[in-house]
Write a protein that binds this DNA or RNA. Structure first.
Lengths: 251, 251
DNA sequence: CGCAACTTTGACCAGATTCAAAGTAAGTGG
DNA sequence: CCACTTACTTTGAATCTGGTCAAAGTTGCG
């Protein structure tokens, strides 16, 4: 399950690709040493693979190194709600480490490369590395903030505003996290993914996206959405700019 | 602003009412001593008062001792989404302590009694009290989990299921936190509050609640909802029981 | 070439919103 | 104690947003 060499060598923390990204904060030497020791392996998964599943009790915590995934919940009859997307630098599995079990599943959207940490060693982080513990809490608070905004969106924005918000949101996160590097800016999602995030049917999602396409704010490509005017999308949604964002921590 | 005696004496931590509640975990002596020193005062607010406001940068962190409040966000044109309700034992203001500023507001639903902590001393928690730092993270993860479920509800449940879920949710939290003590179980909310949580209009919320009333699952009283059959409500929503819940931490 | 997955379109329907107005209860000041 | 106000709940009617169903069009892939 944990491949160290199969599809390429394991990345050592000092060479971590996240380290080159100005949006992430630097570690000091001691933290770096600890995280290197804390990291117990690397995991590669194909697109479509399930990383964590609702009801399970994972022994691991992961940081995304490369690729993207999404968190979702399902009702018994199959209705699915995508809760959030996961991109490089994001931490997953914290819920299953802190609480009894996962209450959502996570599926890879693209091929994925993950850092693996042992659940049993999380105590060490809190005991010996207050700054890293603080960062873990910060990361949890950030997820909360994102969910707040999604809830506002699904609860109170019209389908059109909601779609604009979602694409602007994904675009901002994808560019800042380094998930998307070069133009054109392509988000690798199907309309079904967007529908399940927006709380809409696929049919209506399609019709709503068509309006954004007509206005030349996005274009639809083979299995993906090209973002043409992210600022206009944020404007439609009334979503603030958040320019003063500080470099964010990751583990 | 911080009253120590005005409307009754300040509660000392060893006599904290939360301590009597089996659903909350106990502190050991050292933790208790620290929290006592960490607590810098007590705040009493009237129903309807705004505790924290979007865009502000609070110098405090609060734990609810008594009463209830709600977190919400608004769009520019006044549309409001209630994100979650806050009850005894809940921590508020963490976002503004960790990040630059609040991105939601909090308003008292009932008269409120809060423990006040200084933002500047949060570092001490992480530096010297790993167990408490862990608890703070746990509390953040719990909020995330609640938001996940709300998002599923607003995005994918029908109005009827959604209303049933929300009332079952509020009821479970209210009874476990000690916010509601004796029968009849009355939730002090208006239909406008429920509507803004459900992402529905007041009119449609009223019609939806009426169905629950007809089925004798709830009754509507003066400014409040009486819960008659919480289990039936959870069933309608397909919301799991969560019986094996462990005592939870608070600060 | 042909299947499988995804996107698009149209017709019709249901659930939810809006608007308007009336009913109810609690609270206030005379 | 009553009249008046305010806040909240209820109802009906008209309208609209978004859902469902069905079918066809695309694209990628083996």
């Amino acid at each position: 399950m944990i491949s160290r060499t199969a599809n390429g060598a394991m990345t050592s923390c000092p060479n971590c690709p996240l380290r080159d990204n100005e949006h992430f904060r630097d570690f000091d030497k001691e933290q770096l040493a600890f995280v290197m020791a804390f990291k117990s392996g690397e995991l590669r998964l194909d697109a479509g693979a399930t990383i964590l599943v609702e009801g399970s009790h994972s022994a691991h915590l992961y940081t995304i190194l490369e690729g993207s995934a999404f968190r979702y919940k399902m009702l018994e009859d199959g209705r699915r709600q995508i809760l959030n997307f996961v991109m490089p630098g994001d931490l997953i599995g914290l819920q299953s480490v802190l609480m009894a079990e996962m209450q959502h599943s996570i599926e890879a959207l693209t091929p994925l490369r993950l850092c693996v940490f042992e659940r049993d060693r999380v105590d060490e982080v809190f005991r010996d590395h207050p700054r890293l513990a603080y960062d873990v809490t910060w990361i949890a608070a950030r997820e909360e903030r994102i969910l707040d905004e999604h809830l506002l969106s699904v609860g109170r924005r019209s389908a059109f505003e909601r779609a604009a918000y979602l694409i602007a949101f994904l675009h901002r996160r994808a560019t800042r996290s380094g998930f998307i590097r070069r133009k054109p800016h392509l988000l690798p999602v199907t309309q079904q993914h967007l529908a399940d995030t927006l709380g809409l049917s696929v049919v209506h999602t399609n019709k709503t996206l068509r309006k954004l396409i007509t206005r030349k704010l996005i274009a639809w490509r083979n299995h993906g959405c090209e973002v043409l005017d992210a600022d206009a999308l944020s404007d439609i949604a009334g979503w603030p700019d958040d320019e003063d964002e500080m470099p964010r921590p990751f583990i």
